[in-house]
Simulated scan of single mutants.
Amino acid sequence: MSLLERLNNDMKQAMRNKEKDKLSVIRMVKASLQNEAIKLGTKELTDDVELTILSREVKQRKDSLHEFGKAGREDLVDKLRTELAIVELYMPKQLSEEELSEVVKETISEVGAKSKAEMGKVMSAIMPKVKGKADGALVNKLVQQHLS
């Protein structure tokens, strides 16, 4: 089942259950997917593009969550946490820190990196492997640890 089909089914279910928050988030994600399809001039998006859009939605909410937290807006923080939980339902299973650490070690040995100066080379090799499955900041932190 494609992501769009899943979103449509979940949207119908949210309507039946009168879950306004979930319905609103699903509509936003669906709109982002449709806008991207229009921008690319295609009817069907690839899984990779869908994953990129979902990752963007998660990142936007995490950034907003951080900003609203600093501003003391707990009402908006709670709303964003709910939205984030809903969007993350559609993301692939996230890698644990141990699994990610293994991928980092493998990639460092594949690339042959020895120092932090080669961090860019390692990051460009590793990010396509873990796209949507790991947070970029965590990947960055682990790469730095393994290169030092």
Rank of each mutant, 00 (worst) to 15 (best):
S2Q: 11
L3V: 09
L3Y: 06
L4F: 11
L4S: 13
L4H: 07
L4Y: 10
R6P: 06
L7V: 01
N8G: 06
N8F: 11
N9C: 10
D10P: 13
M11T: 03
K12S: 13
K12L: 15
K12P: 04
A14W: 05
A14L: 05
N17F: 07
N17C: 07
E19D: 15
K20R: 15
M28E: 15
V29L: 04
V29Q: 00
L33P: 03
E36H: 02
I38P: 02
K39W: 12
T42A: 08
K43M: 14
D47P: 10
D48C: 02
D48S: 10
V49H: 06
V49W: 07
E50R: 10
T52W: 08
L54S: 10
L54C: 08
L54I: 02
R56A: 13
Q60T: 07
Q60Y: 13
R61D: 03
R61H: 05
R61Y: 07
K62A: 01
D63H: 08
S64Y: 15
L65R: 04
L65I: 03
G69N: 08
G72M: 06
K79L: 13
T82Q: 14
V87S: 04
L89W: 13
Y90D: 03
M91S: 03
M91H: 02
P92N: 11
P92G: 11
P92C: 08
K93H: 11
Q94M: 11
L95S: 00
L95M: 05
L100D: 04
V103A: 11
K105R: 11
K105G: 01
I108Y: 08
I108S: 11
I108G: 06
I108Q: 06
I108K: 05
I108D: 11
E110H: 12
V111T: 12
A113V: 03
A113I: 01
S115Y: 04
M119F: 00
K121R: 12
K121L: 15
V122R: 01
V122S: 05
M123W: 05
A125I: 02
I126E: 09
M127A: 04
V130P: 06
V130Q: 10
K131L: 05
G132N: 05
G132D: 08
G132Y: 02
K133G: 04
K133N: 09
A134W: 07
D135P: 02
D135K: 12
G136E: 12
A137D: 10
L138E: 00
V139D: 02
V139L: 05
K141F: 06
L147E: 06
